[in-house]
Amino acid sequence: MNSNVASGLREAGGKRAEYVFEAPVRLWHWVHTFSFLTLAVTGYLIAHPLPSPIGEPSSHFLMGNIRMVHFISAYVFAVGFAVRIYWAFVGNKHSREIFMLPLWRGRWWRGLLHEVKYYLFLTPREDKRLGHNPLAQTAMFFFNTVMTFFMIITGFALYGQGLGLGSWADRMFGWIIPMLGDGEGTRNWHQLGMWVMLMFVIVHIYMAVRADMVGKRSSVSVIIGGWRMFRDDDS
């Protein structure tokens, strides 16, 4: 029944496996994860600085280093995302899932409903999909893709404040600041964005681990090796 089954099928000990996430997608996932975590920690420390080091300011660069790590991670985060967007055009069809919700497909909506019911323990059976199920896809779209965009735009807009008016960051992203009220407002929303993404991370990890433990398909290993395993094949 599963029409998603397309290429790269292989059988191993009665279990079906399938190649879902290509190497660039998997690589990006981890680059994205670790740059995000670095950004979250350093960002938090920018908002809540550490106790003052003792001595002349010339012998310290604590805040400066924290900010530098933040900025470097931000570049990694942004460039990684740009490459990932490129891959959405050239990669397999799963590579596009996080960028587009197929809202025009009735089947997708039914799948979404099914997933909601499943997670509310209203229905026991889980749809077996290769990529993301519709619920995961929706969450991924809003809490990861859109939020990543938002964080990049607000982040570089704030970065542009330091680079100065007329700098590339100011010209490309500075427009967001008046839209969010002012610089202080932009900072706040940027900070809140971190929390929203962190919330997503928590749920995402739980869902992935849970799917591995109780679901019918592998979830954690798929983002490491790219192959998705199905534990039984009764469909």
């Binding site: 908002a47 809140l192 929390w195 739980y206 849970r210």
Partner: peptide
């Protein structure tokens, strides 16, 4: 409310939700 207050609540709620869901599972 500050971003950290709202964010802390969001993240906390997510953690609690996850724990509850795990238990329910």
């Amino acid at each position: 409310s500050t971003a950290d207050k709202v964010g802390g609540i969001l993240a906390g709620a997510a953690a609690i939700g996850v724990a509850a869901h795990a238990a329910a599972s």
